[in-house]
């Protein structure tokens, strides 16, 4: 039998020549069920693509924050007012005196001012001395330069605490100065 003749035969009525049975075609009901079956491969492809998209676009929080510090070179490039009076910086000297987080000596270079025991006190004193609408008798303008002078052995966490206290008291020109001898 030729191939053409085989194709013209209806499968239901045809008997196999070799004694075997022809496969019955799927009924309409069965065919529609097979058409509705989901193709998992393409779904998984799309899910992976979406996953990658979200990974790339997500903003991973590092759990970190930053302090901006004064960069002298940037300042020097600016316009200097020849009539501007030089402002005397307020100097804060700090030194680590023990292993604890609170073991730090803090001193503001102001005559008659006792050392501040904690960084919270440093913040309060700085805030009390800042000129602001509610405090016209304050000593320092917010842009008054503040120099933090840690000793060589001062721990970085204490330096950062001092910097934080100054910025928290809303002073805008805070600089870290070369380490002082000692400590």
């Amino acid at each position: 039998m030729t191939l053409l003749a085989r194709a013209r035969r209806t499968p239901d009525s045809a008997a196999p020549e070799n004694g075997g049975a022809y496969h019955r075609p799927l009924s309409r009901r069965h065919r529609s069920e097979s058409d509705l079956r989901l193709n998992l491969v393409s779904m998984i492809d799309v899910v992976f693509l979406l996953f990658m998209y979200f990974l790339l676009t997500a903003n991973f929080t590092l759990g970190e924050e930053v302090y901006l510090i004064d960069v002298p070179q940037t300042r020097a490039a600016g316009f200097d007012d020849p009539f501007e009076l030089p402002e005397r910086p307020l100097t804060i000297r700090i030194a680590t005196i023990g292993p604890g987080a609170a073991d730090c000596s803090i001193r503001i270079d102001l005559p008659g001012l006792a050392p501040t025991p904690t960084f919270e006190d440093l913040f309060r004193r700085l805030e009390d001395h800042r000129v602001r609408p509610g405090n016209p008798t304050g000593l320092f303008m917010p842009d008054n330069p503040i120099h933090i002078v840690p000793t060589a052995g001062t721990r970085w966490e204490h330096t950062i605490e001092a910097l934080n206290a100054c910025l928290r008291a809303q002073y805008t020109s805070v600089r870290l100065i070369e380490p002082a001898a000692g400590g």
Binding site: E64, V66, V71, R155, W156, E178, P179
Partner: peptide
Amino acid sequence: ASYSEVYPILNAASASGARRVDLVVAA
């Protein structure tokens, strides 16, 4: 870290002419 160990790096960063130098702390 001791301040004397960090300060030279601060100085180098400042001297590089970078627009900003930031100090990173834990949030």
